[in-house]
Design a protein around this nucleic acid. Structure first.
Length: 135
DNA sequence: TATCTGACTGGGA
DNA sequence: ATCCCAGCCAGAT
């Protein structure tokens, strides 16, 4: 893997920063993060940033990235996205359940109800944003 | 340099 | 609702 350009580092840093903002017990989508960092066409790239999380986070000093909550990011349908490391999927489901997120199974996939646990900056979530408590 | 791939999405059939 | 697919764009070969 090559050294990311400064522009890419900015992108990755933005993704990590936004991911860290996702409240405990809530989830958001790759596309939503892309929108939040003003790169609406880069949802796939958001996934890549998280895929290479350990590689990219070492380019930054931010200690908050040490325990970055990558598991709070799912796809726009509320499904835990498939990936090369299949184990990471069940691992993500476990981490989410540990935070109280209800993760149900559908044909071998793990599904989260975004109406219940989804986090969106424009959502009028007045009752659900109060149950935060970092670990 | 050319081509393929993927932790994505939204829209059309 | 489900399936399919073109667009997307940085990384990997």
């Amino acid at each position: 893997m090559r050294q990311p350009t400064g522009e890419q580092l900015v992108f990755h840093h933005s993704v990590f920063t936004e991911t860290c903002k996702i409240p405990y017990g809530r989830v958001t989508s790759y596309g939503q993060i892309a929108r939040r960092i003003y790169r609406p066409q880069n949802a796939r790239q958001v996934g890549m940033s998280l895929k290479n999380l350990t590689t990219y986070t070492r380019f930054f000093d931010d200690p908050e990235f040490q325990n970055l909550p990558w598991w709070r990011v799912v796809n726009s349908q509320g499904v835990i996205s498939k990936r090369e490391r299949a184990e990471a999927v069940t691992e993500q489901a476990t981490l989410l359940r540990r935070e109280g997120v209800i993760v149900s199974e559908r044909g071998g996939e793990y599904f989260i109800d975004l109406n219940e646990f989804g986090w969106f900056e424009d959502a009028s979530d007045d009752s659900k944003s109060s149950d935060e408590s970092d670990d």
